[in-house]
Amino acid sequence: MRLRLMFSAALIAVATLVSGLLGATAAQAAPAGPGSSGSMDFGSTGNDAFGPAGTFLWQNPAGRYIVVLGAKPGTFGQTPAILNQRLHRAAALGRTHPFNRIIVSGGETWWLPVSEAQFMNVGLLQRGIPPHQMVNEGRSRSTVQNAAFTVRMLKAMGADGAVIVTNGFHMKRAMANFRSAAKAQHARLRFVAAYA
């Protein structure tokens, strides 16, 4: 466990250092367009500012979270396309809504000494999200567990809702799992979809 924590801290430090040395910016890592710079885009007119997810987040920045669901990294630690899409969408929301925290949800990878959540931390750092805006749920191994563990965290943090970031093919099941988990835990939470 100690080795895993040391490795994940080193991984984040190296990613941040390499990003800085190569001059990578959030604008280079994320798709171009309104609200895609690495700065805090208060009042941005991009889709994430005033669409259903953006409006929902603006209504209660301290009580509404952005939840991005994980996916298994590739054999050599590469980021799969579906996870890149989720990270791009979550980062765009996070940059536009810097007071809403991002929960990255995903447990152990099959061989890497970091969880999917820790792996996603690096991807969000590369896309301009600061560490203090991220919260890890690193125990889940399925969408049902993503929902159960994340709902427990949201309830403990006094949240009243969350934007769920995942791909279209996965959204219906994810939303059903989150609503079921909230009902089972007697958590009064509202969920809004943000398609990656």
Rank of each mutant, 00 (worst) to 15 (best):
L154W: 15
T45H: 13
S140P: 07
W110P: 13
L17P: 01
V151K: 01
G33V: 07
F99Q: 13
R89C: 12
R86L: 03
E108H: 08
A15N: 05
M120Y: 05
A174H: 04
P61T: 01
G128N: 07
H97P: 02
Q126C: 13
P80H: 04
F99Y: 10
T75Y: 11
R179P: 01
V163M: 11
K183A: 15
K183D: 14
F42C: 05
N47G: 13
A156S: 14
G51W: 00
M1D: 10
M134G: 00
A182W: 02
A13W: 09
N47V: 12
S105M: 04
P98N: 01
E137H: 12
E137K: 03
A181I: 00
A147H: 08
M153L: 07
L17W: 13
A49C: 07
K172I: 05
M153E: 10
A9W: 06
P130V: 13
D48V: 14
T75P: 14
H170A: 12
R64F: 04
M40W: 13
A27R: 10
M1P: 09
L57Q: 06
G23Q: 02
A13P: 06
A187C: 07
H88Y: 13
G158L: 07
A181G: 00
P113V: 04
T109A: 05
R190H: 11
E108R: 08
V192G: 02
A9M: 12
R95L: 15
I103T: 06
G38P: 03
M134Y: 03
R173L: 05
M1W: 06
D48F: 15
L124S: 08
A91W: 05
K172L: 11
V122E: 09
N47P: 14
G123P: 07
S44F: 06
